[in-house]
Every structure is written in C-alpha cells, then in structure tokens.
C-alpha cells in the first residue's frame, strides 16, 4: 500500500540509506513540502507562555506580567510550551482537525509535540474537556485525541459547562471567563504534576482557568503543552 501525505495526499516515498535500514523509522504522516510549512518556535520566548519575543523585551511578555500581577491568577500555570507559530498552514490544519473533524491529523500534530513532552516532568496528562453537547457535535475531543496520539492516556478529572464557542468571543470576553470547568476527581491529583494538553494557546485564559481549579484542588504543579502559540 502506498502511504500518502495526510494533508496534500502526495505519495510518501520510502527513505533510503543506512539510518533507514538500522534505526527504527519514525512514523511519517506528512510529505516534506507540508512538513516544512510548520514554523517552529525557536529562539527567545516568554518564559511563561512561550510567545516569541525579542531579547530586549525581557523574559516575560506583557500579557503574562499582567496575569502574574493578579493575585487570583498568579502562579496557577507554571509554564506553557508551544511548538509552532499559528501561521496559515497551522490554522488550516487545526481547523480541519478540530472543526471538520479529521481525527487522524492528531497524529502528525502529536508527532511534533513528542520532543517537548520529553523535557517536561509530569505525573499525568490532562485533556481540556468539552461540554457533552460540544463533544457530541464534534464527535471527539481534540485534546484527548492528541493525548491518544502521543501514546498516553488522559486523566479525566475535569468536565466543562456548555457555553458559547470560544472562537466567537472577543479578547476581553475571553480574558474574563467565568469558571467553566468542574472537578470530578480530587484524590488522584494530590501533590501531582499535571500537564494540560490543548491545540492552541491564544489568550491563555482557558488553560489558566483549568490550572487554577487543579491547583486549588491540591495539584502540586500545572503546566501546559499546546501545538500552536496563537
């Protein structure tokens, strides 16, 4: 069977050479052309949220300074890790994955995230939950799909109350979100390090809401890993 690129359907030609012969081949999901369209976040970034910034601007971005000044939010989320910039290609892949429901794209996305996950110390991965209604509508939860594709299991400790779609809200509305998450399981997270998995870090308020709840419930540390920094 020929293997095709999951984005452009071009045939993936087998790699030849000694490394292909002797080393366990990494799974390939995208052709070289599509793979090259990801814009990896390299260089100096905000130490909190991974936003790319210039060194003159210090080590924390303006938004994170604001978050951390606020006693309510300070130190809920230790660190966010993002892999790529939210460019047109990434936008298209995530839209196809999440809104069109092309589940299999979780695999190339997770493949990009694997390296970063290795650098984080954690006890459990936690998916950002969807409300029951939204999950029925989409058919699957994109965060859980990424965790499955990472070869791990999501710890189901959160649920979500049904509200309007995030992407339809303005920045101000998103920053001051009421708590939409609920905790269903307290014992298992005590003194544990958790990593929240999601597709994009945009304003960071969804992740902070979830992190705050988990920290207040007794988690030791909560960080997050997302494919894109929007």
């Amino acid at each position: 069977m020929t293997i095709n690129c999951l984005i452009c359907h071009a045939e993936l030609l087998p790699l030849l050479g000694w490394s292909a012969l002797f080393l366990k081949e990494k799974p390939r999901y995208l052709c070289d052309v599509c793979q090259a369209k990801w814009e990896r976040i390299n260089g100096h970034t905000c130490k909190r949220c991974d936003r790319p910034m210039s060194e003159e601007d210090g080590d924390t971005c303006f938004d994170c300074i604001r978050w951390e000044k606020d006693a309510v939010w300070a130190d809920c989320l230790t660190r966010n890790h993002s892999i790529v910039e939210y460019n047109d290609f990434c936008k298209e892949v995530i839209a196809r994955f999440k809104y069109r429901g092309d589940y299999i794209l979780a695999y190339p996305i997770a493949e990009m995230m694997k390296g970063s996950l290795l650098t984080i110390e954690y006890d459990f991965l936690v998916a950002i939950p969807l409300s029951t209604e939204r999950q029925y509508e989409r058919g699957f939860n994109q965060s859980e799909a990424i965790i499955t594709a990472l070869g791990e299991q999501s710890l189901s400790v959160l649920t979500r109350i049904h509200t309007e779609k995030q992407s339809k809200k303005s920045r101000a509305e998103r920053i001051h979100l009421p708590q939409v998450f609920q905790l269903v399981e307290r014992a298992v997270i005590q003194e544990k390090s958790l990593v929240l998995i999601d597709d994009i870090y945009t304003t960071g308020s969804t992740l902070r809401n979830a992190a705050k709840l988990l920290i207040e419930a007794g988690a030791k540390k909560v960080s997050s890993l997302t494919i894109a920094r929007g």
Partner: peptide
C-alpha cells in the same frame, strides 16, 4: 483505503468509527 480513517466516536461510542 488511504482516504478513510477511524476515530473513537462520541456519537455512537464505537472505538473505531
């Protein structure tokens, strides 16, 4: 076959829809 895929479906609760 390469243009089909499977997913754990919330609508039918099958592991491979």
């Amino acid at each position: 076959p390469s243009l089909f895929a499977q997913f754990p479906c919330a609508r039918c609760q099958e592991e491979a829809c």
